[in-house]
């Protein structure tokens, strides 16, 4: 809700200012926006479908079974894969990670889960490629995955 208010508020202010200063430039802005939206439309739709599928299959209960009490390295890898693929809203992910940690999952596993969840986006990759290019996307996500394991390793040692 806050997001919506912030974005629309910002839009209203900018749009009014733009219209007062120059109609020509405002029109240009809409043209640019329309083109970008058309370019990304199909991948947006695809993201919606993939998010629906992954969250339909990987419910919090299923994830709990997969990375729950087991503290081994395999659980950490599974957590990284789930984190990289899914797009779970943080309002669901943090309570889930908290309860998993209480039921025996390690700090390392939960840290890798959260970091890959936010930094690596397989589901959003088609859109990222459209916006920023294939190379940029692959490098950003690949290095993000490496970074997630590094961060998790350090956190596992320190905490």
């Amino acid at each position: 809700m806050t997001t919506i208010i912030v974005i629309y508020g910002l839009l209203a202010v900018c749009l009014v200012a733009s219209l007062i200063k120059s109609r020509q430039k405002t029109k240009k802005a809409f043209l640019v926006a329309g083109k970008a939206l058309l370019k990304m439309g199909p991948s947006l739709l695809a993201i919606i479908g993939i998010v629906g599928l992954t969250l339909g299959i990987l419910t919090p209960e299923t994830i709990e079974k997969l990375v729950g009490a087991e503290a081994g390295f395999i659980a950490t890898v599974v957590a990284a894969v789930i984190g990289a693929i899914t797009l779970i809203p943080s309002l669901i992910a943090f309570p889930l990670a908290g309860s998993l940690m209480r039921s025996g999952a390690t700090v390392m596993t939960m840290s890798v889960f959260i970091t890959t969840l936010v930094m690596v986006g397989v589901v959003t990759a088609p859109m990222e490629i459209k916006a920023l290019g294939k190379k940029f996307t692959l490098l950003r996500n690949g290095l993000g995955l490496v970074a997630a394991f590094a961060i998790a390793g350090i956190m596992g040692v320190l905490l």
């Binding site: 839009l11 900018c14 733009s18 240009k28 802005a29 809409f30 926006a33």
Partner: peptide, 15 residues
């Protein structure tokens, strides 16, 4: 969310 975001981007590029 998407339409206002894209319009804001358009405005940014124009101004």
């Amino acid at each position: 969310i998407m339409p206002p975001v894209f319009i804001l981007m358009g405005l940014m590029e124009a101004w």
